[in-house]
Design a protein around this nucleic acid. Structure first.
Lengths: 146, 146
DNA sequence: TAAGATTGAGGGATCAATCTTT
DNA sequence: AAAGATTGATCCCTCAATCTTA
């Protein structure tokens, strides 16, 4: 396990987390913009890759209020990336489904974000990378991973 | 250096970063709400603790467009947490200054967020914490630090 | 009553255009 | 023309209230 040289400005753990969070958000935003959509729209599309999902489950998965999701689906549907499909048995419920364009965009942005984030760690020894990933998982498990 | 037990669902580095980012954002939001403001307002106030700052420098520090900052300062000024002070020599420029209420809120939220994030790592051995912090710093240094 | 979804008000972000001062 | 700041249009979020269906 390599010991990284401590830089002159030694920031605390909390500050490091806040800055890292900003970096991740920035990467997500950049990649999405390159593909002509917003990061929120990209997140939504990626959730739909395995198959159609209902509004309620989507709002839980994306940690969004129902009303936020309504607006988000509105805009993404307007762009022709998803469609609202009525449920056969429950007339209240809707299934959000990817169009072909939506599926293409979902894959492109997911691959882009993953590549860019993994690319941040190319300088890092493989075992350090694995260790940090593992520690982060522990932190997430300690809370609701929210 | 302790080796954390690998959990059954072994997620990748990129996914770990995205989830961690969500967690940090959530903590920031919770603490700010407990203190009666939004996370963005809290961030702004914290920047002003050392002393008054100009609009242009603030927008750089917060990674915000000038227009976003105008609106943010508008709302925070309406709440009596900051004031716009004209520059003596340049009649275009403004200095954003904390009121007493603003300074109180800035300190309270900063301490709250730091405590909560540090609290996430209480289960972690001290040397693991230091190592992870150091690795994150390396990642940040590799880019523009977000 | 409860569940699924939408609407409306307000805070927050970007982008493009604008206005004043330098 | 360039710099400091604001305005307007659009997207995104929360919260509270509402409408329909179960």
């Amino acid at each position: 396990m390599a010991t990284p040289a401590t830089t002159t400005s030694d920031i605390g753990f909390a500050t490091a987390l806040v800055r890292l969070s900003h970096l991740v958000q920035a990467v997500f935003g950049e990649v999405s913009r390159e593909h002509g959509c917003t990061p929120q729209q990209a997140q939504l599309l990626c959730m739909l890759v395995p198959g159609p999902v209902g509004m309620t489950e989507l709002s839980r998965a994306l940690h969004l209020e129902k009303s936020s999701l309504t607006g988000l689906v509105d805009r993404v549907e307007r762009r022709g990336l998803v469609t609202r499909v009525p449920d056969g048995t429950d007339r209240r419920a809707l299934w959000i489904t990817l169009t072909e364009d939506g599926a293409r965009l979902a894959n492109a942005t997911h691959n882009g974000v993953t590549a860019r984030l993994d690319g941040l760690a190319t300088q890092l020894p493989a075992e350090d990378l694995a260790f940090v990933t593992s520690v982060i998982q522990q932190l997430l498990a300690g809370r609701g991973s929210g």
